[in-house]
Amino acid sequence: MHEASIMQNVFDLAFARLPSGSATRVVRLRLRVGVLAGVVPEALTFAFEAMKPNTPAADAELEVERVPALLHCRDCPCDFAPESYPAPCPKCGSWASDVRQGHELDLMLVEFAAENLTTDHPDSTDGERITKHC
């Protein structure tokens, strides 16, 4: 179970984007976790709840977006979505396939909040898109 160290990476990436010197909080984090990533979403949520107190994410919510598997048959070739893994190609029966989708383990977005923000939050950080609500 390495979900705690993965959650630490989530916090590191999110907190690195906190504007310095302001009382900004993290209110939402969204992860994308493929079904073949070798990570259990329930364990991630458990680690998140255990680790968030006394951090800028103390009141944050965690959203985990599951990505189903998509395999590419090396012999047909065709793409197919298996119900479980591993699975043979439904057309030709070959077990040789590459994973097109399903091994994702990404931090998608972070939502921040701040009261009486005196300095502007950054408009862009390394080309990342920022959506202002107000």
Binding site: A14, L31, L105, L109, E111, N116, C134
Partner: peptide, 18 residues
């Protein structure tokens, strides 16, 4: 007190550093 909220799209691999 006004609360401002904003979203940063990170799209980064969690094991990217490794």
């Amino acid at each position: 007190m006004e609360t401002r909220r904003w979203i940063v799209e990170v799209n980064q691999a969690l094991l990217g550093k490794n």
